[in-house]
Structures are given as structure tokens and as C-alpha cells.
């Protein structure tokens, strides 16, 4: 066969190259789909994150060049008693609030899963704390817990349960932490309840029927049907909640600004005060970044739990 005839044969056998066909190849198309979000994440999450790490290694007052001091900022935080108070506060705040949200949210979801009058309206209202912008609802809480005009104290005094002036909800270190946790739970409960409710509705009624026939009580049905099937959902919601609560800022900044005497100061508020108020960007970045290892462990746990081979 001569060369030109070979070429013409090949042209006939192979479909002509078109951009559309090339793009449709799975290996190309998948990259095409993945690239924009990767670029987006790299620009808006990756860059600030790595810039933050770089900042934390500098003695970098605002508006000046900064000098490299290695782990100096971390060492300074290590020797700062306020920092350790911040660590304890953050863990207490996160642990207590998350546990309360988990049990409360599960309870609420179970109730909402029942049939009752105005079910849909109640479900919609349930979402309100989650929908209202945090700063706005927190300002309302500020009034509810106000040292002079607290409606809680007013009610308790009016009913004769306590003597005036009543407790200082945001002024006493323990009460302040307790109040913040209550407000956080109030705001975060709907997220739990609605997500768990969605999970509950995927459980087939036949399983409950089978369990009932086998003689399972209400508790038995919950223990052996609901709970095992809900476990993945509960796990994921809890992880998300821990991450959000751990890095909480708005609520604490508005209600106590970390006071009284740093009793409610957490990572985010302390880092903000040091970086923005004190102009010590390096130190602020270091404090903020100490949040990363515990959160990274959580994300790792979540990633392991969600591995495809585990779910199949």
C-alpha cells in the first residue's frame, strides 16, 4: 500500500478531531469540572491559609515589613496565661454546647417526626433561630441578659423566685460562659434538628413494623432501628457543629467581648483583639492557627469515617 492511500484510510477510520468530542472524554471532562472549584479554593482558602502561616512566623506589627522570628509567636502564646484560659474556654464552650445540641437536636427531631396538627408550620418556625442573622439575634439576647434590664431577672423577681437585683448573667464568669452556651445552643439546635429529621425520614417504616411484630417496645425500636441507621448522620452533623462552635466569633464578640476578665475569651475573639486592636498581626495569626491542629484531627476523623469502602 502506498503512503497516500494509508493516510486516506486512516482519515476514514478515525473520527475527525473536534473540540466537543475531546471535551467529552471522561479524563478531560472530569478535570474541567474540578479545576474551577480547585482554583476558587486555592485563591480564597489556600492563599489566606498559607499567608496566615507565614504571618505567624513573623514579628509583624501592622504597617511594617516584619522580621522572621520562627516559632517565636507560638512560644509567646505558650507562656501567656490568657492564652491557656482561651484554650480551656474554647474546649468547654465547644464540648458543652455540642453535646447539648446533639441530644436536644435528636429529641426535637424525634418529636418533629411525629404526626400532629400544624406540623409543617412548627417545622418552619423551628428554623427561625438559624435563619435570623446571628448578630441581630445576639443583640436581642444582649437585651434579654442585660445586667440592668434583663427580662429573665425581671420575671424571676416578679414571681418572687429571686431577690433583686438578681444574677448578672454576663458579669459573673461562670454565668457568662453558661449564658453564651445557652445562646449558642438556641441558635444551633435547628440545624441539628432539621438535618436529623431529614435522616429520620429516610428510615423505611417497614423496619419499624418488623420490629414491632418481633415485640420491640418504643425504646427497643429507637435503640435497635433508629439509632444504628442514624449514626452516620449524627456523626456528620456533630463534626460540622464542632467546627462551627470551635471557631465561633460573632456571638461572643457581641455578648461579652471575651469579658469579664477573659472568662469567655476564645481563640477567634482573642486573635482578633491581638491582631486588629493591638496591631500585632503575627501574634494574632499564631493564636488563630493554634485552632488548626484540633480541627484538622476532627476533619481527619470525618474523612476516615466517610471513606467510600466504609459506607458500602
Amino acid at each position: 500500500m502506498t503512503a497516500p492511500s494509508l493516510a486516506s484510510a486512516l482519515v476514514h477510520r478515525r473520527p475527525a478531531f473536534t473540540l466537543g468530542r475531546w471535551l467529552e472524554q471522561p479524563s478531560v471532562f472530569s478535570w474541567l469540572m474540578v479545576t474551577p472549584p480547585v482554583l476558587f479554593l486555592a485563591a480564597l482558602v489556600g492563599y489566606p491559609f498559607f499567608y496566615g502561616i507565614w504571618l505567624s512566623l513573623l514579628d509583624r506589627p501592622v504597617a511594617s515589613e516584619g522580621t522572621f522570628i520562627g516559632l517565636g509567636n507560638y512560644a509567646q502564646a505558650w507562656h501567656d496565661p490568657v492564652f491557656w484560659q482561651v484554650v480551656i474556654n474554647t474546649f468547654v464552650y465547644t464540648a458543652v454546647a455540642t453535646l447539648l445540641k446533639m441530644f436536644g437536636g435528636l429529641g426535637l427531631a424525634l418529636v418533629m417526626n411525629q404526626d400532629f396538627r400544624f406540623k409543617n408550620l412548627t417545622r418552619a418556625l423551628l428554623l427561625l433561630p438559624f435563619i435570623v442573622p446571628t448578630v441581630l439575634s445576639t443583640i436581642a439576647w444582649q437585651w434579654i441578659l442585660d445586667p440592668a434590664f434583663s427580662i429573665v431577672n425581671w420575671t424571676l423577681i416578679a414571681t418572687g423566685l429571686i431577690h433583686p437585683p438578681g444574677p448578672s448573667w454576663l458579669g459573673n464568669p461562670h454565668l457568662a460562659m453558661g449564658s453564651l452556651i445557652v445562646v449558642n445552643v438556641w441558635r444551633g439546635l435547628p440545624f441539628y434538628a432539621i438535618t436529623l429529621l431529614a435522616g429520620l425520614q429516610t428510615i423505611s417504616p417497614e423496619l419499624y413494623e418488623a420490629a414491632t411484630i418481633d415485640g420491640a417496645s418504643a425504646w427497643g425500636r429507637f435503640r435497635y432501628v433508629t439509632l444504628p441507621l442514624m449514626k452516620p448522620v449524627i456523626f456528620i452533623v456533630t463534626m460540622f457543629s464542632v467546627i462551627f462552635t470551635f471557631a465561633d466569633f460573632q456571638l461572643i464578640y457581641v455578648l461579652t467581648h471575651g469579658g469579664p476578665a477573659s472568662a469567655t475569651q476564645v481563640f477567634a475573639t482573642y486573635a482578633f483583639d491581638i491582631a486588629m486592636g493591638g496591631g500585632q498581626l503575627g501574634q494574632g495569626a499564631a493564636i488563630a492557627l493554634t485552632m488548626v491542629p484540633p480541627l484538622a484531627l476532627l476533619i481527619l476523623a470525618m474523612a476516615i469515617y466517610l471513606r467510600p469502602d466504609k459506607t458500602t
Binding site: S168, G171, G259, A261
Partner: peptide, 11 residues
């Protein structure tokens, strides 16, 4: 007023 521990600039 011992509630002052919780006051902000407007209380």
C-alpha cells in the same frame, strides 16, 4: 452596681 462587670460602653 455589681453588674458592671458585664457592661459595655452603652450600659
Amino acid at each position: 452596681d455589681e453588674g458592671g462587670l458585664a457592661w459595655d460602653d452603652t450600659n
